[in-house]
Amino acid sequence: MTLPAIITTMAGGFIFPFLLRLIWGKMCEDWGSIGGYMAAGFIVGTTWCLNHGVGLMVQSGGAWVDMAFAAGAGLFVASALSGDNVPKGLTNLLFAIIGGTLGGFILSLL
Score class of each variant (00 low, 15 high):
Asn92Val: 11
Leu81Trp: 14
Val65Asp: 10
Ala80Gln: 00
Val77Pro: 01
Met57Cys: 15
Thr91Glu: 13
Pro87Ile: 02
Ala63Gln: 15
Gly89Ala: 02
Ala80Cys: 02
Gln59Ser: 07
Val54Cys: 12
Gly62Glu: 08
Gly61Cys: 02
Gly61Ile: 04
Pro87Met: 01
Gln59Leu: 09
Val77Arg: 00
Leu50Tyr: 09
Phe76Arg: 06
Ser60Met: 10
Ala70Glu: 08
Gly62Arg: 11
Phe69Ser: 01
Leu81Gly: 10
Pro87Trp: 00
Asp66Ser: 13
Val58Ile: 11
Gly62Trp: 08
Asp84Arg: 06
Ala68Met: 13
Ala78Trp: 00
Ser82Glu: 02
Leu50Gly: 07
Ala68Trp: 13
Gln59Ile: 07
Gly83Phe: 09
Gly74Cys: 03
Ala80Lys: 00
Leu50Ser: 07
Trp64Arg: 11
Ser79Gln: 13
Gly83Leu: 07
Ala78Val: 03
Gln59Lys: 05
Asn51Ala: 05
Ser79Cys: 12
Leu56Ser: 02
Val65Ile: 13
Leu75Gly: 04
Phe69Tyr: 03
Ser79Val: 13
Ser60Arg: 10
Gly83Thr: 08
Trp64Phe: 15
Gly74Gln: 03
Val77Cys: 03
Ala80Ser: 02
Gly83Val: 06
Gly55Val: 03
Ser79Ala: 15
Ala68Gln: 11
Pro87Val: 01
Gly74Asn: 01
Asp66Asn: 14
Ala63Thr: 15
Gly53Met: 14
Gly89Tyr: 00
Ala78Phe: 05
Asn85Cys: 02
Thr91Arg: 14
Asp84Val: 08
Ala63Ser: 13
Asn92Trp: 08
Gly72Asn: 12
Ala70Ser: 11
Asp66Gln: 15
Ala71Met: 11
Val77His: 00
Gly72Arg: 08
Ala68Asn: 13
Ser82Ile: 04
Trp64Leu: 09
